[in-house]
């Protein structure tokens, strides 16, 4: 178990390293001088040169890279081109909104996919199964932005049940916070739910055919208990892996959904920074997200131990 987690941790650190290296190289290989971007649109040659020295962009790449990575270890993500604000500050300011969105979306995804996936697996081959499978393949194909816009069109603009956009911090007004999160969470949640449903269905119907499920039935446990206790834990193993990937995908989706619903989260910050060519911010957000993905994956790996005693040994 320990070696397994350590190995996975290694892979994830490698991801982090790769993102850093690729990002760093891209900045310097591709046309477009970061100093020009940093100095602003109206800067003259002298200002640009001064900015270059000020930001340390005139030093060798290796030195810059070393400084940047050692900074990362101290959780120093550098400073924004835009006003010289520490990148990490800007990120942590935006974190609550994005976290709210991600958690609410995961909730939606699980609330939809677990009943649907288990239900279709148990009634495999029935008309409900076919409808469920069709819905799931449709859901996988629907782009986040389209789902979001249709929800806004119908539920907000036409029916007026929800507000189209906006965000209120949890501690300012919890009810408004939840209310405003419904549409964004539905948007992000449904596509993830569709993917999860497919995997839950496949996994549960595999497990239901296993000998020990038959044993459980032969003990007279009742189908609910057989499914909830005996099938679910083992069916969860492959699903948990997919769940990890889906969290990553969901983080990607925040870029779109925060844009549609004007949620002041990290995704929105990233898109803004791309437009203003605030390179340290873009790279910093990329690395920050890579760290979150890393954390999620470590948690997922640890959950294997709970799900399968054999891994624990």
């Amino acid at each position: 178990m320990l070696t397994f987690v350590l190995r996975r941790l290694g892979i994830l650190l490698l991801t982090l390293g790769l993102v850093t290296v690729i990002g760093f190289l891209l900045i310097h290989i591709t046309p477009g001088d970061p100093a020009v971007a940093a100095a602003g649109p109206d800067a003259d040659q002298a200002t640009i040169a001064a900015t270059r020295v000020e930001l340390g962009l005139d030093r060798p790449l290796v030195v810059q890279f070393w400084e940047y990575t050692t900074g990362l270890v101290r959780l120093d993500f550098g400073t924004s081109f835009d006003g010289g604000r520490p990148v990490l500050d800007a990120i942590t300011d935006r974190l609550p909104a994005t976290l709210s969105l991600v958690i609410a979306s995961l909730l939606v995804a699980l609330l939809i996919s677990i009943p649907l996936g288990v239900g279709t697996a148990v009634h495999r081959g029935s008309i409900w199964d076919r409808i469920g499978v069709l819905l799931a393949s449709l859901g996988v194909a629907l782009p986040d932005f389209f789902v979001g816009l249709v929800l806004v069109l119908v539920l907000a603009l036409q029916l007026g049940i929800f507000d189209a956009t906006g965000y209120v911090p949890l501690f300012d007004d919890p009810i408004q916070w939840a209310y405003l999160l419904v549409l964004p969470a539905l948007t992000l949640g449904t596509t993830v739910a569709a993917e999860l449903t497919r995997h839950i269905r496949a996994s549960v119907s595999d497990v239901l055919e296993l000998d020990y499920v038959r044993t459980a039935r032969s003990k007279g446990l009742g189908s609910t208990r057989v499914i909830l206790k005996h099938a679910s834990r083992n069916a969860a193993m492959p699903v948990v892996t997919v769940f990890g990937n889906q969290i990553a995908r969901l983080l990607g989706g925040t870029v779109i959904v925060e844009q549609i619903f004007s949620i002041p989260g990290i995704g929105q910050l990233l898109v803004q920074s791309v437009f203003t060519r605030d390179i340290p911010m873009v790279l910093g957000i990329g690395i920050f997200i890579a760290m979150i993905v890393l954390l999620v994956n470590v948690l997922i790996d640890l959950s294997y131990g709970w799900l399968n005693p054999r891994v624990r040994a």
Partner: peptide, 22 residues
């Protein structure tokens, strides 16, 4: 390992980051 590493990162985000830089 490199393939595994790339796969763990959210695709759309990576694309946005790359575009942000290039």
């Amino acid at each position: 390992r490199v393939a595994d590493a790339i796969m763990t990162f959210p695709a759309l985000l990576l694309a946005v980051v790359i575009i942000g830089i290039t």
